[in-house]
Design a protein around this nucleic acid. Sequence first.
RNA 1: GGUGGGUUGGCCGAGAGGCGAGGCAACGGACUGCAAAUCCGUCUACACGGGUUCAAAUCCCGUACCCACCUCCA
Length: 461
Amino acid sequence: MTLRLYDTAARAVRDFVPLEEGKAGIYVCGLTVQSEPHVGHVRSAVNFDVLRRWLLASGYDVTFIRNITDIDDKILAKAAEQGRPWYNLAYVMKRELDKAYDDLHVLPPTYEPAATGHVPEMLELISLLIDRGHAYAAEDGSGDVYFDVQSWPSYGELTRQKVDDMEAAEDADPRGKRDPRDFALWKGRKDSEPETASWPSPWGRGRPGWHIECSAMAGKYLGAAFDIHGGGVDLRFPHHENEQAQSRAAGHPFASYWMHNAWITTSGEKMSKSLGNSLLVPNVLERVRGIELRYYMVAAHYRSHVEFSFEALEEAASGFQRIEGFLERVGPGAAGTLPDAFVAAMDDDLGTPAAVGVIHDVVRLGNKALAEGDHESAARHAGEVRAMLGVLGLDPADDHWATGGTNDLTAVVDALVQGLLEQRAEARAHKDFATADQIRDRIKAAGVTIEDTPSGPKWSV
RNA sequence: GGUGGGUUGGCCGAGAGGCGAGGCAACGGACUGCAAAUCCGUCUACACGGGUUCAAAUCCCGUACCCACCUCCA
């Protein structure tokens, strides 16, 4: 069975046929670094990280580009509001974002280009579009350059919209547009904007429009044609529609497949950036571990809306702990082979929910084997579980996660708990169960759970 | 106005014409000194109204409600 992916442009699941056999080029729209990342932002990164890991596991040589938008209207406005340089705001937020990605074990991309580092490439592309008759410098002297929507008949094809049905941009302020739907490729500098936020161009000083950066950077690192372009559903229009129009109008075939992840919502509403702090990644990670948050995200299909709640998150954490508990009971071991059912689920448009179902099925088989004393069989199942978790970035034995749960205090707690456990063992040996239970209750009240296993008692927080 | 998506059991979440995903919670049983963990079992749902079909959660028609996008958004 081959990998099949849902292509937004085709509105159907299609067999994945790469441009070059054995290789996959992926471009994912990263974030505009203007505020702290919340769980919704990170979902996109996790979803595409799973895609990447699955392609790797399937033997592809993957080039994965995820950009950073580090200059735009909002960054400038926020920085001005906070009285600090725009580049400082962008940089600090980028570092926050890197931390959040790392906390969720999102692999670093092959390269992470920033918009401000690619102005020459964008200017080149804009000039090409003007030469080909698909863009024009505003006639009002603003220094803006616009894409000429009417010059590109297939404009709207990605989202199946007709230009005439679209509402005009509200930001216009027509600023010399020929058609209200035309969008900015280059924004002439306004007097209110800092000098540092502008670059020289044939049309005067200015800064890039939002859409052109992705076309320019995707072209630079992946070539005129590449395999997969991804991002959140909200980006389909205008961002991706515009990207495709620009690149194709410039003569580039651009992406073969378009993939879009759905939202995480709260109270049925989209997670807006002004929603408050409770859903920022660091705050959510005070409630559950990173690996559990990742499991929560992976357990839902990437194209399904997820209604975020701490109840559901903690429930997911319980489910994950069941898997972890099994692996701990079996003990260390190497990753094994991937069960066919898992491969089939993943090949079917990254069917992670079904894949997670397979993990639980194998865990049950493994637990059963363990209960029957069949360690060989249990170890084989554990190997399969590790392999599956590895593909999803969820293997607890991965060094990346190991540091998260252990620190200096672990040894301290262990020493204290061990002392109490010895007292309890002694009491139990004398059948003094009242004392034994009292010790266990006290340990539990401190937040440590005791589990009696054939190899002696074990504790966990 | 245009475009796209959704509504599944106590809860979370899959599935996309027939053989009832899975998890969490709850309850019963096994194991245990008692627990915990684990295993076995129980709880058998698809917004509403029509239709097609031997067979519909799944396809068609209609209705209701919800969400997203329409040039700042993961």
